[in-house]
Design a protein around this nucleic acid. Structure first.
Lengths: 137, 137
DNA sequence: AGTATCTACTACGACCTGTAGTTCCGCTGA
DNA sequence: TCAGCGGAACTACAGGTCGTAGTAGATACT
């Protein structure tokens, strides 16, 4: 559970998360500032320290976790992209009363593409498959 | 279509939208700054001009629409709560690639209550009912 | 020892939001 | 007719976030 809200990410912050997520498999130990700078900072003409500051702030916001590796820190995403997105969805829907939420969902679906709806259905089906029936409590 | 992103609302802005939404039926012509101030500003000890500023900004962000009524402006929500929420949901999911989105949805559902899932299914069912089958394009 | 590398700390401008004062204008009643 | 009052427009300011980076100090490599 994140201590801080950590809602909206800035553009650079998002890019950093993107980088960390996309290399998480290849680098489970996390990445250093230098590596992140090399990957996404150089091409943008950003100073090394810029990435350092940003990663530092992100650690304070619990967006990333860091661990010492010699003198350097290794940064790892604190949540997967899916988790963060899901969190955001819940946040958006969270403060709505039942009927309003229902209406919002309807609107949402109404503006979704058939592909998106299929994805949603697939996810629902998969959920059902995984949780035989603990519903109808 | 909103010209501006108009993403996250501040607390006061949200409270104002809430007030406008909840009185939209009774006051389709919209509400004046005075009325909004009386409803939600006085109890918070806010100055009249504070609400004026906030409503003015919200109009510039296309969160609300305004129309002259004598010397005063009448403010109306530019979108329903459901629309705004739906927009926000799309925004959150929008930048995800298919498989990532799928995974995010799964996470989302996984952390949803059975009631929420039922609401979602109900919304899906209602959608199907309304659009017989323009899917499978 | 000298140089490269890394962190820690500080800074600053842009933008957003909450909060409000000031100024000016028109209407209304005494 | 003139003083208020209601209202709008404009200006302001502080606190927070984010992008951006410099500088200083510690450490490690050669």
């Amino acid at each position: 559970m994140p201590s801080t809200p950590r809602n909206r990410l800035g553009d650079l912050e998002r890019a950093v998360m993107e980088e960390l997520w996309s290399t998480a498999d290849a680098h489970p130990e996390g990445r250093t500032v230098r590596e992140v700078h090399d990957s996404i900072g150089v091409e943008r003409g950003l100073a090394y320290t810029t990435l350092m500051t940003v990663l530092d702030r992100m650690a304070k916001k619990d967006l990333v976790t860091r661990e010492r590796d010699g003198r350097a820190w290794r940064y790892t995403p604190a949540s997967t992209r899916a988790e963060l997105t899901s969190e955001s969805l819940h946040h958006t829907l969270g403060e709505l009363a039942g009927d309003t939420r229902r209406s919002a969902l309807l609107h949402f679906l109404d503006e979704s593409t058939p592909e998106e709806i299929d994805e949603l259905k697939a996810a629902l089906a998969e959920l059902e498959a995984r949780r035989p029936d603990q519903r109808r409590a």
